[in-house]
Design a protein around this nucleic acid. Structure first.
Lengths: 172, 172
DNA sequence: GACAACTGATTGCAAAACGCAATCGGATAG
DNA sequence: CTATCCGATTGCGTTTTGCAATCAGTTGTC
């Protein structure tokens, strides 16, 4: 699988790679939700992605080098999907997109709290988060998928999300 | 025209708005190429957008509030398309996307020089550029479209682009 | 050892979006 | 009067999407 290369413009090429309704959403779930298996991405999808679309996107993203797959030792049939370095470097892009969406689109509070924290955290938090992601996606994908290895930044984002989701915003 | 709202997630909503192969490319041409008329967007398109796709995208982006249209006083049939404030605030997003594309995709030098300058310019340049865009798209769309009013930042980016395109990189 | 649940997918099919070429009616310039 | 330009629209075939059902192999439970 390859991109068209309608032109050598960076924005055009990026849209050829990520310019559809699902690719970035899948990457978002892997990155912020640590969904590493097909079924996790399928059943925990807030937007309700269809299984054939998910399969097609995963295959495409793997062939484009944004995602890698490896066997899960705990289950001979399980595949662990991991973000590669190029996908991890989408953190600033996703932070900016989240920030823009939060300002201009009808977002829900619970689903945008992570974007807000990432925005407020700035470049320093992004760098820290990317280092974390390298640990659980590249250094130790098996440990990262199983939960044996975790990311402090991700835990922080998830905790804030859970707190808001439970209807008890941090009022301290 | 309206978005689906599959979920209230900022990233998802942004992809519902901009997640196709053409919308951001059209906005890029308006923003960095100052293409303000249908024919300009159509005939000067590096990627070769089709006229029906362009018409559909413009209509959609107008209805979503990212683009506005007004009459061109120089020609009763001409329509001037302008970026609205939400679209102008995509500058940091486009800068990040351009930066990512430049690092990870097979870009051409000429078409990525503007992304490089925008990346190097940082937040300060983005703010300056957004102020310029407000002048030629919101304050004075007619003057901005005709060239009577210009943007210093845009002129700087365009000059660099032309210089590289002519095969004479700045060696001074 | 039977059986249900779960694994990452695949298939069929209808609907929508896309891409391309040709064309439209109106306005303007020479 | 004619040629060109204006922002589109139409027709049509291809591709992508969305949805539901299904697949074969693996695992855990009893």
């Amino acid at each position: 699988m390859d991109i068209e290369k309608r032109s050598g413009c960076p924005i055009n090429l990026t849209m050829e790679v990520l310019g559809d309704r699902w690719s970035l959403v899948v990457i978002r779930d892997m990155m912020f939700g640590n969904r590493r298996h097909f079924r996790e991405l399928l059943s925990k999808s807030v937007e309700g992605i269809a299984s054939n679309i998910l399969a097609a996107r995963l295959k495409r993203l793997v062939s484009l080098g944004l995602i890698s797959k490896c066997d899960d030792p705990s289950h001979s049939q399980k595949t662990i999907y991991s973000l590669t370095e190029p996908a991890i470097q989408l953190v600033p892009v996703l932070a900016m997109i989240g920030s823009w969406g939060r300002q201009h689109l009808p977002v829900s509070e619970a689903l945008s709290i992570r974007a807000q924290l990432l925005e407020e955290g700035g470049q320093q938090m992004w760098d820290h988060f990317m280092d974390d992601l390298r640990q659980i996606h590249i250094e130790d994908p098996v440990g990262g998928a199983s939960g044996r290895r975790t990311s402090p930044v991700l835990a922080q984002l998830t905790e804030a999300f859970e707190r808001v989701r439970r209807g008890s915003p941090d009022s301290r």
